[in-house]
Amino acid sequence: MDLNLVWFVLLGVLLMGYAILDGFDLGVGVLHLFVRKDHERRLVLNSIGPLWDGNEVWLVTFGGALFAAFPEAYATILSGFYFPVMIVLLGLIGRAVSLEFRSKVKTPRWRRYWDASFFLSSFTVTFVFGVALGNIIEGVPLDADGEYAGTLSMLLNPFALSVGALAVAGAAMHGAIYLFLKTEGDLQARVQGWIPKAFGAFAALYLGVSALALYTQPHLTDNFADLPAAWVVVALNVLAVANIPRAIHLGRPGYAFVSSSCVIAALTFLAMMAIFPNLVRSTTEHASLSIYSAASSQATLRLMGIIALIGMPLVATYTAIVYWVFRGKVKLGENAY
């Protein structure tokens, strides 16, 4: 396995980590308005209170790693997707601010405003991420210099929009299961009612997007010829999807959460597999940006590998400590939001 491939895999790991972890707190944001009482909304927000910030670090590190390992792809994607990226950045600011400021004033109007803002920013961030991912899977027009040669409106094509919808439904499902784990009593009973709805939307969109992908983007399965073992991931993914309602039915939400995490991981894997060996697939006659043509020097990839080797165990340790400290049902303490 060469260093370029190692970094492609490591980026995949960072993306998976981000999608699984920030996925549930984005999902909680998408569902937030469905609870009505202030006390319950506070419980919902505080279930992700200590965790969302650390979850976003996965995105920041993904950005840094993409910059360092594949600067050509980082440059093309971010400048090509300029406006969607700005919307995501403002959305991420909006989320942080809504969470932080909502609790500081007790008037209902103030809180309604920040609740709406929290929902809207969470929804937008999730949706735009999905749209961006959809475009990456499809490929985009590149010019001779490897720069994005399309327009803003070309990014809003049906396939990409449907991936955006799938992202929102997936996050809502993942977030609902997470909330089910963290809440109790009456609130938990209502959260339980959301899971089948979110699951239904996710499953329908998952089938729809898969069909659309296979129909309109036949190149997506090319790599399966070289790596037939990847069909196992497809099969496991289907099983994991099916396991979610089963685990909920059996009253084992932890199991359901693991399943939905596996679904997100598998979908990330399949998306990475679909574009390999490209990072930005060109739909024009000009060359794609591959993990070789877009990469930094071998010396940098090796150096970054050492950094990752030292850093990743530390990251795993901190993450484990924090999730351990904040295990169990959410309670409103003195320092709660």
């Binding site: 670090v57 920041v60 590190t61 950005g63 840094g64 790693a65 910059f67 360092a68 390992a69 600067p71 980082y74 930094s296 940098t300 150096l303 970054m304 950094i307 990752a308 850093g311 990743m312 530390l314 990251v315």
Partner: peptide
């Protein structure tokens, strides 16, 4: 520059 930025994220 990217490697310093990535190191910042990880460390």
């Amino acid at each position: 520059f990217g490697s310093a930025l990535a190191a910042e994220g990880i460390f």
